[in-house]
């Protein structure tokens, strides 16, 4: 298992390099200009100077290599400096955002906690709701519970979050006034009251995202349970006189979890990626909102770095899913 993991990790290096080049080239070839959003009152000569000061004067391969160096050398060294108080990265160029002219990684570090609390919480709640719903729906297939569960899952899966988000705001913020429509990103949780405020402002975005996640995962769970419930080994277990509880939760559930674990694990990078639309609707200052504003502003270094980090996470969690297979199903061996 260890050699498998190591081999996969080594293999991911060329994969990631290729991905980084592809991202860079796509951004390079895409039309757009970081000074396009500036007012027309700024004269063309000044625009040209701004473009030069952003480093856009250099040919693209030079810019790509500079970015690679900054991403793999300068930024890790800088993180080390920040941790140990050393001075390795002094004077070297970090990756700077076009919009704010500040280091991209500082902004990401500032945004990550919000994304993890809101989107992560929504994912967790989604999974916690989806798994029991999937199990019961499958075990009591075509019962009223299954029918209602299917209906809600269909709604949650097919209604887009920009609709549910605004709908919840109109109902719960505008008409009932129960929850705020704008997430207060300056709130510091240091007391019971501020914790309650935090819970209140998280309720709507988490509800929107949890519904979407739960809908998706509960369908997988149900399908996977149904596959297993009709297998021979289930009949054998029952014939041996095992109780329903043991049959369902020990035999069927464990086998059914394999595809579900893949889906859940592959969804985790999505948590880090933030929820672009929901974050924008509720103004949560997470990574999704960061990415979309960077795309609007043609902030190439930010978009490049964020998408590449997502690529790393996806490669990594694919590996995690593979390793978890082995743990759940002893028949699967990679050596």
């Amino acid at each position: 298992m260890l050699t498998f993991t190591l081999r996969r990790l080594l293999l991911s290096i060329p994969t990631l390099l290729a991905i980084s080049l592809v991202i860079f080239l796509i951004l390079e070839l895409a039309p757009g200009d970081p000074v396009a959003s500036m007012p027309l009152t700024i004269p063309p000569e000044v625009r040209e100077k701004i473009r030069e000061s952003l480093g856009l004067g250099a040919p693209f391969h030079v810019r790509y290599l500079l970015w690679l160096k900054a991403f793999f050398v300068t930024e890790p060294l800088h993180a080390l400096d920040a941790l140990l108080g050393t001075d390795f990265a002094a004077g070297s160029q970090r990756i700077l955002s076009f919009q704010s002219r500040s280091p991209v990684f500082d902004i990401i570090a500032e945004r990550l906690p919000q994304t993890l609390t809101v989107v992560g919480m929504a994912y967790l709640i989604g999974v916690l709701i989806a798994v029991p719903i999937g199990i019961i729906s499958a075990y009591r297939q075509y019962s009223w519970f299954d029918q209602i569960g299917t209906l809600i899952a269909m709604l949650g899966y097919s209604v887009p979050t920009f609709f549910t988000g605004v709908l919840l705001i109109v109902v719960f913020s505008v008409h009932l006034g129960w929850f705020p429509s704008i997430y207060d990103t300056t709130l510091v949780v240091d007391s019971w009251d501020s914790f309650l405020l935090q819970v209140r402002q998280m309720t709507l975005p988490v509800a929107v995202l949890a519904l979407y996640n739960a809908a998706q995962i509960s369908r997988f769970m149900r399908a996977s349970m149904l596959d297993n419930l009709h297998q021979d080994y289930v009949r054998t277990a029952r014939a041996k006189g095992m109780g329903e509880r043991v049959v369902v939760f020990v035999h069927v559930l464990r086998n059914s979890m394999i595809p579900v674990v893949t889906v859940v694990a592959l969804g985790v990078p999505g948590v880090f990626g933030g929820a672009i639309i929901t974050e924008q609707v509720f103004k949560v200052n997470g990574l999704g909102q960061l990415l979309i504003t960077a795309i609007y502003g043609n902030d190439v270094p930010m978009v490049q770095t964020l998408t590449f980090i997502f690529a790393i996470l996806i490669v990594l969690f694919n590996l995690v899913a593979d390793v978890l297979y082995g743990l759940l199903d002893p028949r699967i061996r990679y050596d």
């Binding site: 039309p31 757009g32 200009d33 000074v35 396009a36 959003s37 063309p44 043609n298």
Partner: peptide, 18 residues
């Protein structure tokens, strides 16, 4: 045309307002 292209001053783009 998308605003970021239209108002961008990319001399290589045929779609800028200039």
């Amino acid at each position: 045309i998308d605003a970021s292209v239209y108002f961008g001053a990319d001399p290589g783009s045929p779609d800028t307002f200039q």
